[in-house]
Amino acid sequence: MSLIGSEVKPFAAKAYHNGDFIDVTEENFKGKWSVVCFYPADFTFVCPTELEDLQNEYATLKELGAEVYSVSTDTHFTHKAWHDHSEAISKIEYVMIGDPSQKLSRNFDVLNEEEGLADRGTFIIDPDGIIQTVEVNAGGIGRDASTVVSKLRAAQYVRTNPGEVCPAKWEEGSATLKPSLDLVGKI
C-alpha cells in the first residue's frame, strides 16, 4: 500500500542533534516541510556518503523551509559516537533519530525485518504531516541529495499552485502543465 497522501503515524523517539539528545515525535513533522532519510546503519560504508551529501544540501533545504531528519535503527547514543568519530558525519547539523524499537521504520514501511535494519528510504512530508514523496533504494545504491532539493521544490510548487503539475526534470521557474482535456494525447 502506498504511503503517498498518508499522514505520518504517531511515534516517539530519541535523537542526537548538535551535541544534545532530544525527543522527536510526529508533531515535529508538522508546521513546516520535512525530509526524512532512513539508512541501514551507523559506522558503515554507503551511509556516511549519503548523509554527508545531505548535509551539503542542508542549507538549501533550510532556505526552502524544510527540516531534515536522518533515521536508522541504531540508538541516539550510537549516532553521537559516530558523529564524534567520523569526518563525514561530524559535519552533520540536522537531527539524527535513533529507532532501536524499529517503530518508525515500520511506520514508513522501510524495515527489513530479516536484518532488523532500515532500507534506504527518503520521504518528503508537507506542513500538514502528509507524505508527498517516497523513494526507496536497494542497500548498495546511494542517493543524491540534490534530487531531494528538486523534489521538495516541485512539491512546494504543486501545493501552492493547485491545478498545475510539474513535468519531468522540472526546475523552479520553468513551465508547468495544467492537466485538461486539451492536453490529452498532445504531450
Rank of each mutant, 00 (worst) to 15 (best):
S72L: 04
F45R: 08
I187P: 02
A13H: 01
N112I: 05
H85Y: 04
L51H: 05
K186L: 13
M96T: 06
F123M: 12
A118W: 11
A15T: 01
F77A: 13
A88F: 08
I124D: 03
R159F: 08
I131P: 08
L64C: 10
K9R: 13
H79L: 10
V24N: 01
T133Q: 02
I89F: 03
G116N: 14
Q102N: 15
G121T: 05
E52P: 08
A81K: 08
A155P: 08
C166H: 04
A168T: 11
Y58C: 09
W82F: 14
F38I: 09
S70K: 01
S6V: 00
L183Y: 05
S2P: 14
A118M: 07
V71P: 01
W82G: 09
D126H: 06
D144I: 14
P127Q: 08
I97R: 00
T60Q: 00
M96H: 10
P48G: 08
S150W: 02
T122C: 00
V36N: 10
I97M: 04
K62W: 01
P40N: 07
L51G: 05
W170M: 15
V8T: 02
E7C: 05
K32F: 02
P179N: 13
E93S: 15
D109E: 15
Y94D: 06
T49I: 00
L54V: 11
L61Q: 09
F43E: 01
L177Y: 03
R106K: 13
E26I: 01
F38D: 03
I141V: 15
G140R: 11
A12P: 07
R143H: 00
E114S: 15
W170Y: 14
E164C: 07
S101M: 12
V8S: 10
T75C: 14
H76V: 11
V184M: 15
Q132Y: 06
A15C: 13
P100N: 15
N18G: 14
Q102I: 01
A88L: 08
E63Q: 10
A81L: 11
G140K: 03
H85Q: 14
E93V: 06
H83V: 14
Y94S: 04
L181Q: 15
E52V: 07
D126I: 01
Y39D: 06
M96R: 00
I131G: 05
V110S: 09
N161P: 02
S101N: 15
P100G: 15
D23F: 07
T122R: 09
S150A: 15
L152H: 11
V36E: 09
E93Y: 12
S174C: 15
D109F: 12
E87I: 12
V136W: 03
N107R: 04
D126G: 12
V134S: 05
E52H: 13
